[in-house]
Nucleic acid binder design. Structure first.
Lengths: 239, 239
DNA sequence: CTTAATGGTGCCAAAATTTGGCACCTTTGT
DNA sequence: ACAAAGGTGCCAAATTTTGGCACCATTAAG
């Protein structure tokens, strides 16, 4: 969460909720009161009109008439939206998915061509099933926050991914694989990847993937990639 | 001079001067070569298309055709996207939903304020449950394509909706109700509405709602509203 | 072939910025 | 008087940014 992201979140929250307070915002974005006050000052500096009332019953309120900015979405953001819509379609809610799709199409049109190319490649590797697999989902875990970004980064740049995996019996192994596809069989998500150590394709339940605890040669990792996209290039089959 | 200011300056310089080099830019803004290269990467990530040619006589050039066009989305489109993301969040796929949310926030920012007000009102009437109801879903039907648009139209303009409804026993009734909320208990979607004939609130499973076969006074209906949003205003409780 | 110019990447320590905590002030409604 | 709210100044700790360096790949000129 960069400064900029946090400030975006503040604006979003104020847009949605109307009047709010510094304490509320601080709790919302997980920052201190002091930081929020600094952000508010920065946002005012950037042109946002934010009314404030001191005293009991006071608070902050964004004047929504004030600023209009062009949205600039990143590839993972659009990809996440696409996944949302696609999985809703898979759940059978077609009419709504179609409407959302129309909106997405417009967004895609506004993407620069190279981003669009990335997006198409990501879409090509995404499979969404309609029927839930007949398996026990009582111990369905939480997916790690950075997994989608890490997948996108590694897949597009043809890098390997490193992570720790717990199989159905709870045995933890450390993996280094080449990501090839994402398979969604609601509510289970799978990563399909080539495991060069085992010389074969493997499915990994994404809720069982964790960031690697001990990364050898961690100095090779860009700091923002949590799942250890490696610098070693991958021989992908498709062009 | 913040990072952002510097990156803006780079874009301005490239817009003005056409082809340039990293060294030139570095000298221009008083930063190192390394920093400029990092900025270029960030700008590309943000959606700017910047061509580059290596080798003697090479350089950088901003593709000015790739100027971002603001996608024009309608309220129902954004609403459908929001539902997609919200239902994915309800399904427990938080990290992905958060990413999608960030994208949506940017889209919301670009909406004109009156649309944003509409959107907020729609959001206020949307409830998404996390646990599926313990009911038989073997006969889950298809939701009609225009139902969401009709709901949005009728709700925002405080009009009545007309439709045919089949209850659990298959008995068909013709309804004329005031829509108040949408309740999603995956995979079942409900319309919550006031039924003035029966003088009470009713839940309608949305997959059992069908367009009315015989609509009296159909000349009053806007053509695109399939479900017969009536011109009679509704007394909504909230402002 | 050699060389110079150019974009690009990885790494690391130094520099700069951001952050959280604290004390304290002002305003406002009960 | 008091509690709840916004706002400011300060400082050490945490985090991010930066510059410098080495090095790679590509390209054109000599």
């Amino acid at each position: 969460m960069t400064t900029r992201d946090r400030q975006d979140a503040l604006i979003r929250h104020m847009r949605r909720n109307g009047t709010t307070t510094v304490a509320t915002l601080a709790h919302q974005v997980g920052a201190s009161r002091r930081t929020i006050l600094r952000d508010i000052a920065a946002l005012r500096d950037a042109g946002f009109v934010i009314d404030s009332e001191p005293g009991r019953g006071g608070g902050l309120a964004l004047d929504t008439r004030s600023v209009q900015t062009t949205p600039r979405l990143t590839v993972p953001e659009v990809f996440a939206l696409l996944i949302s819509v696609a999985s809703m379609r898979a759940a059978g809610n077609l009419p709504f998915a179609n409407l959302a799709d129309a909106g997405l199409a417009k967004i895609e049109k506004a993407l620069p061509s190279d981003k669009l190319r990335d997006l198409r490649r990501l879409l090509d590797c995404l499979y969404i099933g309609t029927l839930a697999p007949q398996i026990d989902i009582s111990n369905l875990g939480q997916m790690s926050p950075n997994l989608l970004s890490a997948f996108e980064h590694a897949f597009l740049k043809r890098l390997q991914m490193r992570f720790d995996y717990s199989d159905a019996k709870g045995a933890r192994t450390s993996r280094r694989v080449e990501p090839h596809a994402m398979l969604i069989l609601p509510p289970i998500w799978y990563l399909v990847a080539w495991d060069p150590m085992r010389n074969g394709f493997r499915h990994f339940r994404m809720d069982r993937i964790r960031a690697p605890e001990h990364v050898e040669g961690s100095s090779f990792l860009p700091r923002h990639v949590t799942f250890g996209a490696d610098i070693r290039p991958v021989q992908h089959p498709q062009g």
